[in-house]
Design a protein around this nucleic acid. Structure first.
Length: 753
DNA sequence: TGCGCAGGTGTTTTT
DNA sequence: CACCTGCGCA
């Protein structure tokens, strides 16, 4: 083992060596906090601390995995595998699996993701005959979620005067009632949502002193990364767990607090200093990541915030290139610019694809960049958005696995009882669901007694067959391994057959996804457990794991040489040589939702700060004058944050040049319209603006058999044309992209010769 | 009961 | 533009 202290600076070293008592590390962006954390843990283990007694909580699964690997490489042995390290959610899901039965939950409880939770809320709103436009599932969910993050039970929620007034004012006085039903229903289903994992951990630790004592003893050292993004529930859990040894070390940066919408509160940082009299505070202020220019620009931006801990981030790196400000005419032009710039940088400065990241405020902004990168043949990968395990076909399959593991789970039961279609309709389901509630039985129990509530004929026998099959799998669930069971379920219930019969491109993709799911289960069953033994692993653990996985956690093709696209949120903790921060416009960044409140706006500014500080060498800040939104063109002013960058650090030549850039127009009606040269107008001159090198042909000219080019799908052949002249739909075969139905009136297609 | 179509509606950010 | 929902028809 090498001398792990040698590469640390004074403050870093101090933080590593200060192991006893409460410690807060205020770590600026790029100041080596992961290095400090991993070295600190390695140092503890090296000093004889039992690795089983160290708890480290991170913000993402990926961060946890990487930390584990780094600790292993410092130590040169496999001690790190014994650490309790992971996200709050995954670590406490693991704890709850052991302890949940004390609270009346099955140890195989199901974890509901946001989609599951919203669908349950939806059905409760429906049952109560409330207007689902007023009681929108997402609104109600957010309301319940933030209550839980602040440790409100439904009872407290209903009794809280302020909350009741808020709900009354928003004309949604029933939210408390929905909250109550929702909580009871989750409990009855043997299910916890994301927030419950924290809330129930808190309840467990406060209501069961013997449990608290057990984990307090166990965790001799507690470390928390990204402390600025913890919420009240997490704060209390951590405080309880570390109360005995008080060897608690938190690492955070108030300037990077960007999750308040999820209940996170920077207050926790200030509170930490009040909670412990003997708290030690170490600031890491040397930045090892970015050039002087980037760092100075970032410092300047964040200094506009009122609410912050003062610190002075510095670097001894050279100043480097100026920040490049880019203005494009439309969002498509912006995409094209970025792709071109990447191409140019690759050729000129020998960068490869993986040296670039495109950061945007919202997931929906990725499209223009996908198109332009694809057109130049640049490999890219989008992080975020829909994770693999959230795809519909995967969730359906997973729902089968869930009910085998936990038959109380009504949501999952409803999801698949008639998939593939077997003739159990909505009417019967409503009947059963209602009866189950009245008789206080689980949905599954009620299914077994369907005859007693007047269900008969073929529906009854289908239900009977279904119940028998489920019971069969439950009975063998203990004996066979997870992969075999999953495989057989697919066969037995006709899921595999159903997917296999769909020969469309989408259908094939779905089938492949299911194969991938099955492979992942197989891999899971074949991976040795923590003691290195190859035991038959329970399906329940697998299911809990995958629900807590996000897209960013998938690292299968991590090493592929791709340009990365992601939201600024998703980029936290990462670094890249070249960063494009795009869509820097009012209403987008800052978001229109966050412009009218100082605290919200400051969070947007911190977000911008996070974006800039991801970069090692180059930053481009880009905005477009016009962009498509809901299918029509809108125009935004450049973001106010651009003005906050010091002008001497910004190269604005690309923004000025764009003002005289030639843009190609084609009119909607007549082809071969004269190409106009224009200065950038502040409002769109035309409703139809294709990217400049692409001239669409008239819809009327399209004929079957023609080769056409589509800006997103590439080159394809028109298979059929259907519909009236005003509303023609073409089926076009784009080869590897599959067959697409395209509305000619909307799509821009160019005829190839 | 199941599928197809027309129309309405929607964009923060995520464990 | 893309998705989802609700409604109408077989």
């Amino acid at each position: 083992m090498h001398d792990y202290l040698a590469t640390l600076n004074e403050q870093q070293k101090e933080a590593v060596l200060y192991t006893e008592g409460p410690l807060m590390i205020v770590a600026g962006a790029g100041s080596g906090k992961t290095k400090v954390l991993t070295t600190r843990i390695a140092h503890l283990i090296q000093g004889g601390i039992d690795s089983f007694r160290i708890l480290a909580l991170t913000f993402t699964n990926k961060a946890a995995r990487e930390m584990k690997e780094r600790i292993e490489s410092i130590l040169g042995n496999s001690e790190a595998r014994n650490l309790y390290i992971g996200t709050f959610h995954s670590v406490f899901a693991r704890v709850l699996r052991v302890e949940a039965e004390r609270m009346g939950y099955p140890s195989n409880f199901t974890i509901y993701d946001t989609e599951d939770a919203k669908s349950l809320i939806k059905s409760i709103v429906k049952e109560r005959n409330l207007d689902d436009k007023v009681y929108k599932a997402s609104y109600v969910y957010n309301r319940i979620s933030s209550a839980k993050n602040n440790l409100y039970t439904y009872k407290e929620y209903k009794e809280d005067h302020n909350i009741q007034q808020e709900d009354a004012r928003s004309n949604r006085p029933q939210i408390g009632e929905i909250f109550e039903t929702y909580s009871k229903r989750c409990f009855k289903n043997g299910a916890m949502d994301f927030d419950d994992l924290l809330v129930n951990t808190y309840i467990l630790l406060t209501n069961f002193p013997e449990v608290l004592s057990k984990y307090q003893h166990k965790f001799q050292y507690v470390m928390i990364d990204e402390y600025q993004d913890t919420n009240l529930a997490q704060y209390h859990i951590v405080k309880l767990l570390s109360a005995m040894h008080e060897n608690i070390c938190v690492v955070g940066d108030d300037a990077q607090s960007i999750y308040s919408f999820r209940g996170a509160s920077m207050e926790n940082i200030f509170q930490f200093q009040k909670d412990y009299e003997d708290v030690k505070i170490i600031k890491l202020e040397q930045n090892y990541r970015s050039t002087g220019t980037i760092l100075n620009a970032a410092n300047e931006v964040i200094s506009k915030n009122e609410n912050q801990i003062k610190k002075e981030l510095w670097t001894d790196k050279e100043s480097g290139e100026k920040i490049k400000l880019v203005c494009s005419f439309t969002d498509n032009d912006e995409g094209k610019f970025v792709a071109d710039a990447i191409m140019e940088q690759k050729l000129r400065n020998h960068f490869s694809n993986k040296d670039f990241v495109i950061l945007y405020r919202t997931n929906a902004q990725s499209r223009a960049f996908e198109e332009s990168l694809r057109r130049l043949g640049i490999l890219y990968r989008i992080y975020g958005g829909m994770s693999f395990y959230h795809r519909k076909e995967i969730k359906d399959y997973v729902a089968y696995l869930r009910i085998i593991v936990n038959s109380q789970d009504e949501e999952s039961m409803k999801r698949i009882i008639n998939y593939p279609a077997r003739g159990i309709g909505q009417t019967s389901l409503n009947k059963i669901s209602l009866a189950a509630q009245e008789q206080n039985k689980s949905f599954f129990e009620m299914l077994s007694e369907a005859a007693s509530i007047g269900i008969k004929g073929s529906t009854l026998s289908t239900i009977h067959d279904f119940v028998t099959a489920v019971k069969h799998f439950q009975s063998i669930a203990e004996k066979k391994n997870a992969y075999e069971i999953a495989m057989e379920i697919g066969k037995q219930f006709g899921v595999l057959k159903d997917l296999n019969s769909d020969k469309t491109i989408e259908g094939l993709a779905k089938y492949e996804n299911i194969q991938e799911l099955l492979n992942s289960i197989k891999e899971y069953t074949e991976t040795p457990d923590e003691e290195g033994e190859l035991t038959d692993k329970p399906l329940g653990t697998y299911l809990q794991q995958i629900t807590l996985l996000t897209d960013a956690d998938q690292n299968a093709d991590e090493e592929q040489d791709c340009v990365k696209l992601m939201t600024v949120h998703a980029s936290k903790g990462l670094e890249f040589p070249n960063v494009f921060v795009v869509g820097m416009e009012e209403n987008i960044f800052p978001s229109s939702m966050s412009m009218y409140d100082r605290a919200d706006l400051e969070e947007e500014r911190r977000l911008f700060y996070v974006a800039i500080t991801r970069a090692r060498e180059n930053v481009w800040i880009s905005y477009a004058n016009n962009r498509y939104r809901f299918g029509s063109l809108i125009s935004n002013d450049p973001s106010r944050f651009i003005e906050e960058l010091p002008t001497h650090l910004v190269d604005a030549s690309l923004a000025k040049k764009a003002a005289f850039k030639t843009t190609t127009f084609t009119s909607n009606k007549t082809k071969n319209d004269t190409v106009q040269q224009k200065k950038i107008p502040s409002k769109p001159a035309s409703n139809y603006v294709p990217s400049s090198d692409f001239i669409a042909d008239e819809p009327g000219k399209m004929q079957a058999g023609m080769q056409v080019e589509h800006q997103r799908f590439g080159i394809g052949t028109i298979v059929t044309l259907e519909g009236a002249i005003a509303n023609k739909v073409a089926t076009i075969d784009f080869g590897t992209m599959g067959q697409k139905k395209i509305m000619l009136n909307y799509a821009k297609l160019r005829i190839m010769n």
